[in-house]
Amino acid sequence: MELNMRLESNAAIQIQKPIEDVFEGIVNPEKMTKYFISESSGRLESGKEVIWKFPEFEDKFPVKEIKIENNSSISFVWDLETVVIITLEKLPDDSTIVRVNENGKELNEDNLSWALENSGGWANFLACMKAYLEYGIQLRKGAFEFMRKR
């Protein structure tokens, strides 16, 4: 019997903001550019495709197959081998748990490295989002300048 194992990258955080604010912080490019991306061609909406640019990279990244469930989940494809699923859970104290799962790559040495890097990347995304949504702090600003191609 051959196992067809798929890798996953996971991260989660609790944000002390209502679920509606957190959801808007993810789908609205004006907010996302404060903590994650430098540019977006538009708002994340079901069935739409947008292009993201990051401040430290020259490349632009198409975000496809977007599926939105208002105040509940956001999913998209930006790597043809994986799907990103962001889920939101409202807590009784009006805070929100945000979980990110990116999955689909086959288990091999290169993809194992990918899973470890992306888990850290999504944890960084969540920490930056928390800092911005709760305190207006832009943690990502200047954080990855060393990664720019010279």
Rank of each mutant, 00 (worst) to 15 (best):
L112S: 06
F36S: 08
I85F: 04
R150F: 11
V50K: 07
G120T: 05
N70E: 15
E58I: 03
E45M: 09
I13W: 05
E20K: 11
D94C: 14
F144L: 09
N28M: 01
V100R: 00
C128S: 03
V63L: 01
F61R: 01
N4Y: 10
E20Q: 14
P18H: 03
I68H: 01
E56Y: 01
M147P: 04
G25A: 07
Y132C: 02
M129P: 03
W78Y: 09
V27M: 09
D93K: 13
V98Y: 08
T33E: 05
S38I: 06
E8N: 09
K34Q: 15
K48S: 14
F23L: 07
I37N: 02
W78C: 05
L7P: 10
V84S: 03
S119L: 12
F36D: 06
S72K: 11
I85E: 08
Q14I: 09
T82K: 13
E106W: 10
D93A: 15
C128E: 00
L112I: 06
A123C: 04
G121L: 02
I74C: 06
N4R: 06
Y35H: 15
T96A: 07
V83E: 13
S9Q: 03
P92I: 15
Q16G: 03
K60M: 02
V100G: 00
Q14M: 12
Y135M: 06
N108A: 04
D59T: 15
E106V: 08
N70A: 10
Q14Y: 00
S95A: 04
G120C: 12
S75D: 02
G104I: 12
L139K: 03
R43S: 03
A127S: 02
N28I: 00
D79L: 11
K90E: 15
E134D: 14
I85V: 11
S72W: 07
S113T: 13
L88A: 03
S75C: 11
S119C: 04
F23S: 06
E58C: 00
R148Y: 13
R150M: 08
E8Y: 13
L7V: 09
F146A: 10
A131F: 00
K141Y: 12
